[in-house]
Design a protein around this nucleic acid. Structure first.
Length: 206
DNA sequence: ATGACGATTTACT
DNA sequence: GTAAATCGTCATA
């Protein structure tokens, strides 16, 4: 898996909705400082459309220290801290100065399941965790893969710590579209169909 | 300097 | 279904 073909800049420089659909089925790879490889196949993503999107951190053109990397070129990582305890990871879309991104909401774990179990074991016993408890949510997967603010702004096209490789093709018939999660404050933007996931996949968030 | 609030997860009734 | 956990960030002053 770590030898598979990496996704190029060209792949990421698309509008967030198109990129979100294209990200389904691709593989996110994390190389830990000790060299261990953790990876998972993307099964759920949301698109954030930037300045016009009331649910986006860059709504209205907001540019702060926290969301700075969302303004980077497509293919960078935007990782933020939320609820006083969780990290979430986005893949930045489009070009530099066009602050749009795709939130990675769930992965199907592929490599390093034991390490993921250990990292997810803060509350429960590792042995009691099902595979579908490891990466079935945006903050679960960052915890499982050891992704935090240190990786905010890294270039996924060139980094050896965090990157994406080409996965198996996804069948259109398995792709489901739905409203995004946890953004009821965004009013009319809350029910736009910008969440994409693989129908019936057990690793999709609940 | 202050206060309100999360692009969530977990446990419990 | 409801609620607690927990604190950096941002808008306001």
């Amino acid at each position: 898996m770590s030898h598979a073909k990496r996704l190029t800049r060209r792949f990421f420089r698309r509008d967030p909705e198109t990129l979100a659909r294209a990200l389904l089925g691709q593989v996110l790879v994390r190389r830990l400082p000790n060299g261990k490889l953790l990876s998972g196949r993307i099964v759920e993503v949301e698109a954030y459309l930037g300045i016009e999107d009331k649910a986006a951190h860059t709504y209205g053109g907001r540019r702060t220290e926290r969301n700075a990397s969302m303004w980077f070129d497509g293919g960078h990582a935007y990782i933020y801290f939320t609820y006083g305890m969780h990290y979430c990871m986005n893949v930045v879309s489009a070009r530099a100065e066009v602050p749009t991104a795709c939130l990675i909401r769930a992965l199907e774990p592929l490599e390093g399941l034991d390490e993921m179990r250990r990292r997810r074991a803060r509350t429960r016993l590792p042995a009691r965790l099902k595979d579908s408890d490891l990466c079935s949510g945006p903050a679960k997967l960052t915890q499982a893969l050891g992704i935090d603010r240190q990786l905010d702004g890294v270039d996924l096209v060139t980094s050896d710590e965090l990157f994406l490789v080409r996965g198996r093709k996804v069948l259109g018939a398995n792709l489901t579209v739905a409203p995004r999660v946890g953004i009821s404050y965004a009013k009319e933007w809350a029910w736009k169909p910008l969440r994409f996931f693989l129908r019936g996949n057990p690793h999709v968030s609940r």
